[in-house]
């Protein structure tokens, strides 16, 4: 069985009165795509931020590539790529400069960073906009740029928060194919969140349903009606335990 690359154990975080994540256990293995789905405010982005060390948990632990996130160093993070909520916005930089800088900040030398920038830009069909200032990009192309910056250094672990937001249908297919290739050929692990159930059903090996900061079960991505499964689970969870604050 392939190794666990992302692990959360009883991880929790509260913002004031709001329990954003309430004791989540989670594992993602090498070569698999795990999707997190949930209603707005379910805690998907907060959980991802906890896994990436952007937030400190109130309790519980998170591990990436076998290291506790709080102790993770350059060697660990150089193997991780992520896009959380909005793509970075350095409007004055061009697309090529933004992607190149992302590769450099991940420890790549200049020459390799330039080669990798060209490769990922072709993969995500950004070639035409390479020398445009990012402030002039459409929302969809800005999303492609964010993905290029997350993928340019060929990470072993990817954490992507709603990566297909604002993408046109062709862009959605392109991202899905790219993730499938990276997981299949390179053994990359992907934790992805999305609001689009049909999309994650096509992409993910496993779907986890997050509701009120807890994982309340999984959905079968190959099932007949994923949307029906989703609402049934949410309704059952709400009946069993009305929202606690």
């Amino acid at each position: 069985m392939s190794i666990v690359t992302i692990r959360a154990h009883g991880i929790a975080r509260r913002f004031g009165d709001e329990q954003a994540v309430a004791g989540v256990d989670l594992e993602v293995r090498a070569g698999e795509i795990v999707a997190l789905v949930g209603l707005n405010g379910a805690g998907k982005s907060t959980l991802m931020r906890l896994l990436l060390g952007m937030l400190r948990p109130d309790s519980g632990t998170a591990e990436v590539l076998g290291r506790r996130v709080v102790d993770a160093d350059r060697a660990v993070w150089s193997r991780v790529g992520h896009l959380i909520e909005t793509p970075p916005r350095y409007g004055e930089l061009t697309v090529a400069e933004s992607v190149y800088s992302a590769a450099r900040l991940q420890g790549w030398d200049r020459r390799s960073a330039r080669v990798a920038t060209a490769a990922i830009s072709t993969d995500l069909e950004l070639d035409h906009w390479l020398h445009r200032a990012t402030r002039t990009l459409s929302l969809g192309n800005r999303q492609r740029l964010g993905l290029a910056m997350a993928l340019v250094h060929r990470p072993d672990v990817l954490v992507l928060d709603e990566p297909t937001n604002s993408l046109d249908p062709l862009g959605v297919v392109r991202v899905r194919e790219l993730l499938r290739i990276r997981t299949g050929d390179d053994g990359v692990s992907v934790l992805v969140s999305s609001q689009h159930l049909d999309e994650v059903a096509r992409m993910a090996d496993r779907i986890l349903l997050l509701h009120h900061g807890r994982i309340i079960g999984g959905l079968d991505p190959h099932g007949v009606d994923v949307e029906h499964q989703f609402f049934q689970r949410v309704l059952e969870a709400d009946r069993a335990e009305p929202r606690r604050r």
């Binding site: 952007m54 350059r74 993070w77 991780v80 970075p88 916005r89 409007g91 900040l105 420890g107 910056m149």
Partner: peptide, 18 residues
């Protein structure tokens, strides 16, 4: 202001060096 901070987390270059 430009929402760039999250991209400086979980990368090989530490934030303090930026």
């Amino acid at each position: 202001v430009d929402d760039a901070l999250p991209a400086l987390f979980a990368i090989a270059t530490p934030r303090w060096s930026v």
